[in-house]
Amino acid sequence: MTRTKTSGEKQLWPFETVGTKVNGWVDDLGAVGIFLLRAFIMVFRAKQLPSIVQQVYYIGARSAPVVMLVGLFTGMVLGLQLYYTLVKFGSTGALGSAIALSLIRELGPVLTAIMITARAGSSMTTEIGIQRISEQIDALYTMRIDSLRYLVSPRIAASIISFPLLTAFFDIIGILGGYLTGVVLLGLDAGSYFYRVETSVEIDDITGGFVKAVVFAIIVSTICCFQGYFTHMRTDAHGAKSVGLSTTSAVVLSCVLILISDYVVTSLLL
């Protein structure tokens, strides 16, 4: 989120710009943190279940086809690429393990999160953003309906439910995709493929993958809702344009943070 520049003496550059920018980031971070906390607490209030179910439909169920399609092709391309690499070591038997582990530990959670961001995250930002600029959120205020509870909490809750489920779909279909290329196409032994899958995957890998999925869920939903909710505070644009910019920021920021947090969580788990 951009900030209007404070006037300052020129000789303090670049310290002042850097300082202001960092201050800005810390402020934003604090704001996002409080936003998340308050919205999360509201998840457990009454009357939320129907809205949460609705949001699971839009965020989860409707993203399923896309996620499964991407999962299939990811698995298939992994099958191809890894086969030709493993052939050089004479270890094509390890294809099952390689694919399963890559998907379950990394590609499943990350790619699922990115696909959902593109689909549902962007629409969260836009919907809430438009409601903000057309004063609908103010209208909720005048009716003493907490807009955070009504708009944001269900989306965060639905994301936490949907991301792991969709990640599981991605993983399973990805492994099947690897089967399609590795076994059906390239002639690997089906038995050993699935055997390797079963034996090499451990419970830690699976829980690790789902922990990542939940972390990503929280990041994506919070950032996308936050950007939409405060779109009126942008100084660089107003009206429809600000909603557009907010959506772009939300999607980009979400994807970047998915990858950064992926590293952080991975290093914590290993």
């Binding site: 989860g60 792991p164 599981a168 993983d171 399973i172 899958v197 995957v201 451990e202 699976i206 829980t207």
Partner: peptide, 16 residues
């Protein structure tokens, strides 16, 4: 379906 998928993965693959 999602929960079934997770359960399958956990049990079968994770060698619970």
């Amino acid at each position: 379906i999602g929960l079934v998928a997770i359960a399958y993965m956990t049990v079968k693959l994770g060698n619970v």
